[in-house]
């Protein structure tokens, strides 16, 4: 039940080489404070592991608990269409206190995403993709955010750099 399903595919937002030995998938919600706390840790992890890590982000917004989560996710999906998903992702996690529509439009402007594209995202242009991520998360046993999978297996340990690096290191040893 703690296996990632569906596996990572071309449909996913991925940073890092496709053939990296380690793939970390995060199911996240842009308005979730715990995801906000995980954000700098995962950034540091990416830096620490470099090309050994591929990082994938999938949407798991709790839209009733977090009123801006749905539109924030839609905004990032819109940014993906102009190849700027990760900049949008980072921008959202760095401004979790300002995720209202006006702020999202301003972030869009900064990224070179025109107003119409952001408004189309708000109107649901990417809802199906976001829901697909969410449903995949449910089937993979995601029960809250952030929820991490390392090489397809659920990671339930603490989200701090040392523990994550250790766990990934041990994974590498077991392959060797």
């Amino acid at each position: 039940m703690s296996q990632l399903n569906p596996p990572v595919s071309a449909d996913d937002h991925a940073a890092g080489p496709e053939d990296a030995p380690v793939t970390l998938v995060e199911y996240g919600d842009y308005e979730c404070p715990y995801c906000g706390m995980a954000y700098p840790v995962l950034k540091a992890l990416q830096e620490a592991l470099g090309s050994r890590l591929r990082f994938v982000f999938r949407n798991f917004p709790l839209t009733e608990a977090h009123p801006h989560a749905s539109r924030a996710a839609a905004f990032a999906e819109a940014a993906a269409t102009i190849g700027r998903f990760w900049e949008a992702h980072d921008m959202l996690y760095e401004h979790q206190d300002a995720l209202d529509d006006r702020s999202l439009l301003a972030y869009g402007h900064a990224l070179g995403l025109d107003r119409a594209a952001v408004l189309a995202a708000f109107e649901g242009a990417y809802d199906e993709k976001i829901r697909r991520d969410f449903r995949g998360g449910l089937r993979s046993g995601v029960n809250g955010t952030p929820c991490l999978f390392i090489n397809g297996r659920r990671y339930d340990g603490p989200v701090d750099l040392d523990t994550l690096v250790d766990s990934i290191q041990r994974l590498g040893d077991s392959y060797a």
Binding site: Y34, A65, G144, T145
Partner: peptide, 12 residues
């Protein structure tokens, strides 16, 4: 909130 089972089911 974030880990709450009922909040999750609400979305399902």
């Amino acid at each position: 909130v974030c880990g709450d089972q009922m909040a999750l089911y609400n979305e399902v």
